[in-house]
Structure formats: C-alpha cells, structure tokens
Amino acid sequence: MNNYQSIFSEGFDLKYCVKGQGKPILVVGSSVYYPRLFSENLYKHFQFIFLDHRGFVEPPRALKQEDYTLDKIVDDIETARQLLKLEDFIILGHSGHAFMALAYAEKYPQNVQKVILLNSAPTNSQERQQQSFSFFNETASAERTKQFEHDIAFLENDINNDPDRRFVHMCIRMGAHSFYDYTFDAAYMWDGVYTNMEVIDYLWGVAFAERNLIQSMARVDKPIFVGLGRYDYLVAPVSLWESIDHSYKNVKKIIFEKSGHNPMFEEPNTFDSELINWVNE
C-alpha cells in the first residue's frame, strides 16, 4: 500500500508517493498509475517520487484554460521540488509526460541532473498520430490487427457508459497498440486513477501537438535517456527518433525489442539494467 501525501498548488491537491531509497527520480504523471509499472528491484537503487499533475486530480473549481497550460504544470513540479527539498535530481516523463519533464528541465536546468524520456513520439500533432496509425496498419501482424479490431469495438460503448474516463477506456482498448503481448489486459493498472478530461484533452491535443521534443532537447544541456519500445504503436515508428544519433553526445537512446509502450513493465530486467547503468555513469 502506497503512502500518499499532498502538495497544494493553486487549490489543486497534487498527491505524491515515495518508493525506494537512493538518488531521487521524480516521475511526473499519476501517483496511482505509475508505481504499478516499475519493478521493486529499481526501488532498491533509487528513490522514486511519483507526482500527480493537474490532469489526474479533481479540479478545485470550474477551470479556465489558463489553469492547465504546460507552464502551470511545470511550475507545479517546481513547487513540489521546493517542498520536497530536491536538488540535483533526475526527472522522468513517460508518454505524454515526456513533454512535461523536458519542459521542466528547459525552464529549471539548475535543479536537474539528468532527464529520462520514455515512449513518446517527438510531437503529438494530428499528422504524427495519423502516421502512427498508418504504421500499425502497414506492419502489424494479422493476429495483432485482429485483436485490436476486437478490442476497439467496445470503446464507443465504454465511453457512452462512462464518459469521464474516456482517456482510460481508450488506453485499455488500445492494448494491441500498446503491448508486445497484444492480448494483455491493462485494465487493473487504471483502477482508482482519476482523469480530468478537460485538462488531458488540452495538454495532449494542443500543448503536446505544438511542441517537438527533438527541438527542445537541443536546448537542454543535460544527459538524456530516451527509451523506446519496438512494438509501441501508440507513438510509432521508432524511426521518428532517427535524427538522434551518435552526434548527440548527451543522449542515450535505447530501443527495447520486446516491448510496446511500457518497457519498464514488459522487460523489467533489461530496462532496470540499462537505467541503472546510465544513471550511475
């Protein structure tokens, strides 16, 4: 059972939980969801701090768009850093949260030692999302495609019955796009995860569509770990990152060959080994 504490920022009750000991790694996202993805082994090496952002907590009032800009999210992370007295820490962002982690490192480089970006495309533009879908349609096995067609048929009904959890239902029904084992049912991972669709729609649909991580990385003079899954069709193809090559001396790019969107969960031994070695370099 995780022990949750709160950080209040402009009325938002941002929960966090701490697991493990050692060098601190701040994981931006849901404090409920993300502890379920990482191995107990990693907590022997590092102190993971799992922090909510405004998209994963109940709103304190009727919101306006200025309540959930990327800048607001970044400043919430800074509020948390100050309260937790973190200095020279590692920041980790997975999927869309990679945009948050890198934006923080860009704005507050003096606080960050290293940056970990996992399973994101360089941008979340509509064009890129369509590119990922096309890649799936062109390259996925017949069995994977059949599984996806079976699962996605339930999505409309899921959303009609429970529209406030549209993001969760989509993540679950996109399992054949998300996991190396395309039959895996990730529903349990989302138990108890609150989602604010107003905030998530804006961040994923607008803020992350306007940014490009590769361009931002050029402005962040820190060691950066980029982890990708060969079978991560949500943000495919991995060739979107091909411009990050050996000329980027500060970037370590790893492609996990038997993973989809969650290599820390799907290939924990390989993932842990790569991450531990990189952090300790």
Rank of each mutant, 00 (worst) to 15 (best):
N2A: 04
Y4Q: 02
Q5M: 05
Q5E: 13
Q5K: 14
G11Y: 04
G11I: 01
L14G: 04
K15H: 14
V18M: 09
G20C: 08
V27Y: 09
V28C: 06
V28S: 04
S31V: 04
S31H: 02
L37I: 14
H45D: 13
H53F: 13
F56L: 12
V57N: 03
E58V: 08
Q65T: 13
E66K: 13
L70K: 05
I73C: 05
D75G: 00
E78P: 00
R81S: 12
I90F: 09
H94P: 01
F99W: 05
A105E: 07
Y108F: 15
Q110W: 00
N111R: 10
V112T: 07
V112G: 05
K114I: 00
L117C: 04
F133A: 10
E138K: 14
T139H: 15
H150R: 14
D151H: 11
L155E: 07
D158C: 13
I159F: 11
P163W: 14
P163E: 13
H169S: 03
M170C: 07
M170D: 11
C171T: 03
H177V: 02
S178G: 12
Y180S: 08
T183D: 11
Y188C: 11
Y188D: 15
T195C: 14
N196L: 12
E198G: 08
W204N: 11
R211V: 04
S216N: 10
G227F: 07
R230P: 00
V235W: 01
P237D: 00
I244E: 06
Y248M: 12
N250C: 01
V251P: 02
I254D: 03
S259T: 06
G260T: 02
N262Q: 09
M264T: 11
F265N: 05
F271N: 07
